[in-house]
């Protein structure tokens, strides 16, 4: 699903955020991306999203070479990727329903179908009863679940998350991670950036560890001995 081929990223200020990074995430695979703060986790996800572009090397998503992609195609790439942010990126000028509906409205879906899909997604994250509320009135954990519902509502084959449990207590964090596992079980490829090692050590998934922009370790949680 994702292939990095000797990718380096140097920011305009000269900082090397990623150095000669190569890895693959198979279709339907779930993996964690860890490393100290500033290790380059967010940068890696931004390269997948075409928010940033590699200085060297090539990134492939769903078989497409991103460096060959025209700017006009970027929106269509992003429709294949559901993203969850630490700060949710919700819009507080509209209801929970309208927040989740946004990706479907962009695709020009019929209102009836939008309603069905949004309610299914909200049901999945347990917020169907709050669809008419403004997300500002929800708790942090609920807001994060609205963000997740929006990320999965158009059934993308790839789900990315950047510190999705950053502000949540351990209980809520486990619930959120469990949600991601459920999506993975129905075939969605999942890549989650987090520095919450205590949380992921209990989950048996592949773990990519970054340090100073380099890939330090790649293996299952048990094997790398966290």
């Amino acid at each position: 699903m994702i292939t990095f081929d000797s990718v380096s990223k140097r920011y305009p200020n000269g900082h090397e955020a990623l150095v000669n990074l190569s890895f693959q995430l198979a279709r339907g695979e779930m993996a964690f991306l860890t490393g100290h703060s500033g290790a380059g986790k967010s940068t890696l996800l931004k390269l997948v999203m075409q928010i940033e572009h590699p200085s060297r090397g090539q990134v492939f998503v769903d078989g497409q070479n991103l460096s060959r992609m025209r700017i006009g195609q970027i929106p269509y790439l992003r429709r294949k990727i559901g993203v969850v942010f630490q700060d949710h990126q919700l819009l507080f000028d509209r209801s929970v329903f309208d927040n989740v509906a946004l990706p479907l409205v962009i695709e020009g879906m019929e209102p009836k179908e939008i309603k069905r899909r949004v309610q299914a997604a909200l049901d999945k994250v347990g917020l169907l009863s709050k669809e008419r509320l403004n997300p500002i009135s929800l708790s942090g954990g609920e807001q994060q679940r609205v963000g997740i519902a929006r990320a999965v509502v158009n059934k993308p084959p790839l789900l990315l998350a950047d510190e999705p449990t950053g502000n949540l207590d351990p209980m809520l964090s486990r619930d959120i991670m469990h949600l991601f596992e459920q999506f993975n079980q129905v075939g969605v490829s999942v890549l989650i950036a987090t520095h919450d090692l205590a949380l992921i050590s209990r989950l048996r998934h592949r773990m990519l560890t970054l340090g100073q922009g380099r890939l330090l370790q790649d293996g299952f949680v048990g094997e790398v001995g966290v």
Binding site: L91, F92, D93, R94, S95, F97, D98, A101, L102, V105, I106, P111, I114, K115, R116, V118, Q119, E131, R132, N134, I136
Partner: peptide, 22 residues
């Protein structure tokens, strides 16, 4: 305030009673 604009870019109507699918 921005919250007083309930019909922003691409907003859809808030659904009423859900209908069973045919």
């Amino acid at each position: 305030s921005r919250r007083e604009n309930p019909r922003p870019i691409g907003a859809t109507r808030t659904p009423d009673t859900p209908r069973p699918e045919k």
